[in-house]
Design a protein around this nucleic acid. Sequence first.
DNA 1: TGAAACAAATTGGTTAACCAGATTGGTTTA
DNA 2: TAAACCAATCTGGTTAACCAATTTGTTTCA
Lengths: 233, 233
Amino acid sequence: MKLEILTKNEHKELHNVIIANIRDLINNKNLEPGDKLPSERMLSEKFEVSRSNVREAIQKLEFYGILKSKPQSGTFVADIGQVAMNGMMDDILGLEDPDFKSLVETRILLELKTVRLAAKRRTDEDLKSMESALEAFKEKVLNNEDAVQEDLLFHLAIAQACGNSTINRMMLIITPEIINNFEKYHVCDKNQSKRRLKEHQDIFEAIKEQNTQKAKQMMKDHFVELYKYCYNL
Amino acid sequence: MKLEILTKNEHKELHNVIIANIRDLINNKNLEPGDKLPSERMLSEKFEVSRSNVREAIQKLEFYGILKSKPQSGTFVADIGQVAMNGMMDDILGLEDPDFKSLVETRILLELKTVRLAAKRRTDEDLKSMESALEAFKEKVLNNEDAVQEDLLFHLAIAQACGNSTINRMMLIITPEIINNFEKYHVCDKNQSKRRLKEHQDIFEAIKEQNTQKAKQMMKDHFVELYKYCYNL
DNA sequence: TGAAACAAATTGGTTAACCAGATTGGTTTA
DNA sequence: TAAACCAATCTGGTTAACCAATTTGTTTCA
């Protein structure tokens, strides 16, 4: 067996090959939901890759809920049915890296929801953490410092207050990618930071008053420029 | 070093401990964005866990974009800033498993968007794959068979047609969990399947005609019962 | 005859040794 | 003096050997 060090992309490509192999194997062995996959050792031999590569590919499929491995027992096909499994495998294999436009579009969608839910469901504790995030942002802005991080942390605080763990998780997934792209494209205009602060304060007030309509509108106003920026790409 | 086999939950808990340790280490060593983390060997020794556990925790943080490891070089703190890093670490540590209500709420949010975008952006190729998914669903329904998988695959086909890779990825993430809960709670009523088929056909027609308003409305109608179900939990 | 008990083989998880590329510090050379 | 070179060291990635829980097939005994 040959030994090579792979780059990240080759690595990802290898995972996809293994995933495709697993899919085909499930199909022509006609494995039903709940059936046991061949052992990691057998797979690594059959596919001519290392066992750790097989394990990583299986972990990825576990993340998407397609497989489930039990210690000292085996790896099992999840109870989602063969058709769904095939469809999802193909989707996963076809996944492309997120572009900036899709990230911003998704962020706006999520945040217009989180802000409404937060206005409806926020606890006093949520208010406190949002307020402290807002204060941190304010201090940076008034000192004329860069405040991209504090900006996004305020938004994450809103996401936490929205009482929906799934949306919160998704906000966490996209936030670092958003930050990276912000820095890459220099989206944030420092001259506008005072205005951004005002908008944040308005959003916070609306959530505090539990005024869902106003909260959503304030967030929309807040995103106007980002929205324009996104669709000019 | 003691050897134990951990359950999935203990495993997750161990990851969280390691993540918290890494966070603290970054903080009191005052590592800046772009700085190099101590090597995996050092970390595993310092935290008194195995190196593979450290690697898994690092992989998780890489998934969220907080760390970045380079082969033969080291693991680096991402360029998202110390404040954002701390905030995100805490959020990740506080993540709870998704409840059914949050899943459904998120799904509805995402799908009301995907259907509009799909109506606007669908290519002829998209139409073909949606149509074949619809056909598969139709056949099952007319034969009075269970069609949960085909149902969701039609929705995934719409997500693929929406031209937003981030939203598409999120649909993929929640779909298996949705399927599992559908089966657990027996949400799908077979008596309603004929009606579901009609609704799917309406949605497909609206997307075909590129009528975004109608597409959204049809999807809303499609979700009426699911929505009610979700809020009665 | 059937079930209970035991032993061997199989499993995913864990550990440790190993690999080759990257880094680093000191030495040499122009 | 500084740039170029080289070897020792350090790194994440890879491999292989090992562990204990589980499963499975056989034997044994009531």
